[in-house]
Design a protein around this nucleic acid. Sequence first.
DNA 1: CAAAAATACGAACGGTCGTACTATTTAGAT
DNA 2: ATCTAAATAGTACGACCGTTCGTATTTTTG
Lengths: 204, 204
Amino acid sequence: MEKIMKKGDLTRQNILSRAVDLASQLGLEGLSIGLLANTLNLSKSGLFAHFQSKEALQIQVLDAGALIFSEMVVRPAIQEPRGEPRIRAIFEKWIQWVQSKSNAGGCLFVAASAELDDRAGPVRDHLVKIQKDWLNTRVRVAMTGVEKGFFRSDLDCEQFAFEEHGIMLAYHHTARLLRDPKAEVRARQAFERLIQASQPPRSV
Amino acid sequence: MEKIMKKGDLTRQNILSRAVDLASQLGLEGLSIGLLANTLNLSKSGLFAHFQSKEALQIQVLDAGALIFSEMVVRPAIQEPRGEPRIRAIFEKWIQWVQSKSNAGGCLFVAASAELDDRAGPVRDHLVKIQKDWLNTRVRVAMTGVEKGFFRSDLDCEQFAFEEHGIMLAYHHTARLLRDPKAEVRARQAFERLIQASQPPRSV
DNA sequence: CAAAAATACGAACGGTCGTACTATTTAGAT
DNA sequence: ATCTAAATAGTACGACCGTTCGTATTTTTG
């Protein structure tokens, strides 16, 4: 049974795929229904009928983006063995995600975070949930790093995830806005320092 | 001679002050001339006459924001003594800047960076210049930290500034989007770890 | 105080925005 | 092949966008 999907669902997926691209460039607010329809050779009203409001579209764009992120970053990392390999895989895939050509406009969530951090409403709430989920995932992975003995037993895993996030944000900024070719090296260096500080004290 | 400023320059300053606020909430693109005029009881065309285009307005908003940042962060930090006090003052004032009530919509430059990182044109170029200036300032301050012996002589000062920036970005995200009350503690902890790693090796 | 220059206003322009309604086309089931 | 329901198109709406222009008002200057 391949055909669970009616035709409408297929075009909706098509729309969302393009919408994720555009939203990463123009932001969730800057993404307009008319423009989105034009780039897909659809009528504005025909496209609009798939969502009942722009707000609903924005929420589905976030979900579609999160799904891609899961497939490109979370899934391949999760199937690495627990401990060091998985921790390093997350960072590696995350870097690749930022560089990914499908992210022509930069990471959708970096853009959306800056855009929505001071707005209220369901779109913001949805973004917060997605971001907290991703944070928690990384906290848990750090915990398995502790269990496997790769990390110190007294490591503050939430602190680890916080600092890891900071490295990625600085990388995003340095690579995408400043276009500094050293950005990736800087990010890796910072990550190695974070790893080292999280490991059991060196036997001297 | 107090009156170098004609009346028009005064209102222009007023406009820019409000515009910086609004832009930090709505972004540089989301900031509209009509709305800006309304909140100031000005006519749209009267306001527009001060700038000849929205693009010019956006550039001046960035400059106005950079000026406020200079006065709230750079200047007080610079007049601290070289070395550790100045380095810590930068971080401290920077944290206060993010919390500052004048930044109701979050840091203008975080918002603008995410918005403009994939656009071309003079507004983006202007933002890049401002951001590079700030980065260079911090690199130079780190260098004086080396000269004063507070930091290791082989410290990579650009790397230091990169990681410092990451901590602030993670703080911004964690405090403003996630509304995590532990954000500030996390940021301080990360900064202490960065400081410690930058200091001369502990005599054991 | 008058002349000149700077500043602000009101109305209007062509566009695009999100959304609502109605029609037309298309697809799937019988 | 026909009927029904889903999917898309068409049209219109009021609101707001950035921008222009002509005019009125205020400020500065001589």
